[in-house]
Design a protein around this nucleic acid. Structure first.
Lengths: 152, 152
DNA sequence: TCCATATAGGACTGTTTTAGTACGAATTGA
DNA sequence: TCAATTCGTACTAAAACAGTCCTATATGGA
């Protein structure tokens, strides 16, 4: 299914919620309420996002989290990378070694090509766009829209 | 990591091996030898590819498998779909229901957008291209190459 | 006709990954 | 000092996945 983990999905929901009110601090409990993601999971994800430098944490009473950069400067690819590590659909694209059949595998370069295209698609969507409702125009020509955004 | 299962990876290796000699029948044992994918796995995958109509099977003595269409007419997306089902990186893009927070999730359309872009990337690479060695030009401008192929 | 060789289909098992939970430590504001 | 909150880490349960095996069926040749 070429899947993204649920956690990465939740993470984008959470960080999109933060992007809706930049500057302002939100604690884990409040975010859980707003997004309906279970509280322990919210905590876990925010820690990951913090470690990746996407959100800032303020400890102590009346602490919370807030976006570390402008919503326009954070992409979906950043969020996925924070939660799931480097974006690469095949093993061999990640390490370069150890897929077991690499010596026979003539297609390594083709995979790399596909990976790059996917990465560009993910890097062309920012939190600002995720937070904003889609326009009819975007929905009608999704590929064109993405490729323009990515300046392909 | 936005990963593709190993099986889908192996499947493309196998079908690329078939694409290298279209028309000609290859049995599971021979393919296992040529690709170094374990024999039982080869069997399993070829069955899946057959059910999806990507390869033709000939039973009985001196039987084997062969590509059902021209290598130019089969895309990486076809292969992935045959092994892993519909291509969609989030739950909500598949069924439309049941991601648990769908009512609050304002980003559904954005995910759909990203899905479409990824699908196009995968549909723009054919077995003929996978089987052929990459040119230097493709490697230098991967995104441009893919987008041209997809006619974005 | 019989036998060796192949695929078809399904059931099963072990392993790995993932999601989710829990708890003590550290930090801050009142 | 106390209460609220994040930090770090370890743990557990569940699901997905890779891989194996067995039996039935089809085919070609001796």
């Amino acid at each position: 299914m070429l899947k993204l983990g649920k956690l990465a999905d939740y993470a984008t929901v959470l960080i999109t919620a933060l992007a809706a009110r930049p500057q302002q601090l939100s604690n884990a409990h409040e975010l859980a309420d707003r997004t309906h993601v279970p509280l322990p999971t919210v905590s876990k994800l925010l820690k990951l996002l913090n470690k990746a430098g996407l959100v800032e944490a303020q400890r102590g009473a009346s602490g919370g989290y807030r976006l570390a950069r402008a919503p326009e400067a954070v992409t979906v690819a950043d969020v996925i990378r924070a939660v799931e590590g480097p974006i690469a659909i095949t093993e061999c694209s990640t390490h370069g070694t150890g897929c077991g059949i690499q010596s026979t595998c003539a297609s390594k370069n083709n995979w790399r090509l596909i990976d790059t295209a996917i990465r560009h698609a993910l890097e062309s969507v920012t939190l600002a766009q995720m937070a904003a409702p889609m326009t009819r125009r975007m929905l009608e020509a999704p590929v064109k829209f993405i490729s323009q955004a990515a300046r392909i």
